[in-house]
Structures are given as C-alpha cells and as structure tokens.
C-alpha cells in the first residue's frame, strides 16, 4: 500500500516536472524543473531497493550535471524566450508515442518470452552498496575502468574547449610579456 502510494505520487511529480521542462519557454524554469525531476527519479531507485544508485543519482545529476548546466547558462543569453520549431504538433506527438511504444516492445519482448535467470543474483545478508561493490569490482571491472578513462577524456575536452588562451603558458612568460598581454586584453572588446 505504502509502495503504491509512493509510486503514484512520485510518478505524477516526475511526469509533471519533465513536462514543464520540455514545454516551457523560459530556460530558468526548464533547468529548475529538470533538477526537481531528477531528485524525484531517485525516489524510484530508493523504492526499488537500489539505494546506492539513488544516492549516485542525486549526487551526479542534481549536484554535478545541474551545476554544470547552470554554469553553462551563464555564457548564453537565457533571459530571452526560447524559440520553438513550428511543425505539425499532432504528427510529432503521435510519432514520438509510437516510437516509444515500439522501443518498449522491442526491449520487452525477449524478457516476456523467455524465463531469464539472474546472472549476478542478489546475495543474502548484504546491503545494496556492498552488493554493488562486489559485482562492480569483479565482473564489471573492465567497463568500470573504461568509463573512468572516458570521464577523463570528457574532462580534458571540456577544459580545452571552454578554456581561453590555451596556447599561452604564464609560467614560461616573463613579467613584461604578461603585463603587455593584460593591456591588450583590456583594449580588446570582451566577447559575450
């Protein structure tokens, strides 16, 4: 009973938050409702017994990703209204619902068809975090390391793309050169 009430409450909240995030014309409303929706999604993970995944969801999404988006929004002009594509709305909504149903059918058909067995069954007497650690660092060690390398690549590319004057090194320049560079910066018009 408690599970059902929690499920329907959070389902309603999540759907309404994501609907606002998708339909609003204000960027600030969109980012706020998206952050709220992410936190509500972590409630499903807690209901499902995936405690560690829920904590990670809160930390990564509403902590890191939303902060990154908020930081990125400082670069863009977010006060003006967001322009939308003016296509045929009925066709767009119909197509998206049909494709979503198709994806669920494609993914769900083998699960319903065959009685699958648990590859890494949940061990008795161990908490969720302990189980996750045991499986992640034994069976999924190589994908874990690959994901770590991918995050490193993403971090370096983010620094290189968003950084200014990456071709200059302040440690290799002497005082006069640095002062000259600063003077040039002041006279130049600041972009964005």
């Amino acid at each position: 009973m408690f599970e059902a009430v929690a499920f329907y409450l959070f389902a309603f909240l999540t759907i309404s938050m994501f609907y606002i995030a998708v339909t609003t014309s204000q960027a600030l409303y969109a980012i706020s409702s998206l952050a709220a929706g992410m936190i509500f999604i972590s409630a499903f993970f807690f209901i499902l017994g995936a405690d560690f995944l829920g904590a990670i969801q809160i930390v990564v999404y509403s902590g890191a990703v939303m902060a990154l988006y908020a930081f990125g929004m400082m670069f863009f002009d977010t006060t003006r209204d967001v322009k939308e594509k003016h296509g045929n709305k009925v066709i767009v909504i119909g197509l998206s619902i049909i494709s979503a149903v198709l994806i669920v059918l494609i993914v769900g058909a083998p699960i319903v068809g065959s009685n699958i067995e648990a590859l890494y069954p949940i061990t008795e007497g161990a908490g969720n975090t302990q189980e996750v650690g045991m499986v992640l660092f034994t069976k999924y060690l190589v994908p874990f390391e690959v994901a770590a390398v991918m995050l490193l690549v993403a971090m370096i590319s983010g620094i290189v793309l968003a950084g200014k004057k990456m071709d200059l090194s302040l440690t290799l320049m002497n005082e006069q050169e640095i002062l000259k560079m600063r003077e040039e910066d002041k006279t130049k018009k600041v972009l964005s």
């Binding site: 648990a118 069954p121 994908p143 993403a154 793309l161």
Partner: peptide
C-alpha cells in the same frame, strides 16, 4: 528479477550522461 546487471548498466549510463554534458557544453560555448 533479482539481478544486479541492470543497476550496473544504470551506473554506466549515468557516467556517459555526465561526460556527454561536459563535452556538449564545451562545444556549445565554442
């Protein structure tokens, strides 16, 4: 299904989403 594989894939999806945001926002700023 009492299987931890789904949670593992969810972790990797979260990692991919985080790196996608980092690279995408960098490109967007450029």
């Amino acid at each position: 299904y009492g299987d931890l594989t789904g949670q593992m894939f969810a972790f990797f999806v979260i990692a991919i989403a985080a790196s996608e945001v980092a690279v995408g926002l960098g490109l967007l700023i450029v």
